[in-house]
């Protein structure tokens, strides 16, 4: 084949079919989307089982999309997707690995108040024994106790656990008020030193 014929063939093959995708039609589902790269950050998803409401995602959220709403016995951890920039900081910071960025991107919402615009998780709150204020999600309390047991120095384990039984169910304020009764209170150790 001569060179001009080759060039002509190449040009014709290039222009014989347009590059347009069939997008909104899903006649051929495998070719519906242009390209979904690996690790595409789409809508975040929260595992309601794993989330303990620790506020770590709230602290790092750059667009202020994540909110913690405490209403009586209920704490709602919520991501407002309209403000979310899909930066995945919450996924990185989540200690329980409850948050995952999915690759879901094809969604539109008709109204601001639509449920689809929020990624919500409701958590039950623990009430203080003495002052009756809700201060911590129940799940978080349990999880903190587990972690404490895992990472504690075996030397002090017994003392700390007995103290933990005493303060269980009090809010930080009330705990502080009762702290002098604890075996782990610094006062006692100070007294030992002096002696």
């Amino acid at each position: 084949m001569s060179v001009p014929a080759k060039i002509l063939k190449q040009v014709l093959s290039r222009y014989s079919s347009p590059m347009t995708l069939k997008y909104p039609s899903g006649v051929d589902p495998s070719k519906k989307y242009s390209q979904i790269p690996e690790g595409l950050r789409g809508v975040p998803e929260r595992d309601a089982e794993k989330c303990v409401g620790c506020r770590a995602c709230f602290m790092v959220c750059s667009g202020r999309a994540t909110r913690i709403i405490d209403l009586g016995d209920k704490r709602t951890v919520s991501i407002f997707l309209f403000r979310c920039t899909y930066c995945a900081h919450c996924q990185e910071s989540c200690p329980e690995e409850a948050l995952k960025m999915t690759s879901k991107f094809e969604f539109t919402i008709g109204e601001r108040e639509d449920k689809g615009a929020y990624v919500d998780t409701d958590l039950e709150m623990l009430r203080c024994k003495s002052c009756n204020t809700a201060f911590l999600p129940k799940k978080m309390e349990k999880r903190v106790f587990e972690r404490l047991q895992e990472k504690m120095n075996p030397l002090v384990k017994e003392v700390v656990l007995s103290d933990y039984k005493k303060l269980e169910g009090y809010c930080p304020e009330c705990r502080r008020a009762r702290s002098t009764n604890f075996d782990t209170h610094t006062k006692k150790w100070l007294w030992l030193e002096v002696k």
């Binding site: 997707l81 920039t85 615009a117």
Partner: peptide, 13 residues
């Protein structure tokens, strides 16, 4: 009337 959230949304969206 219609919100297309995303930063930035894909052309498909």
């Amino acid at each position: 009337d219609v919100y297309v959230p995303g930063c930035a949304p894909k052309p498909e969206q």
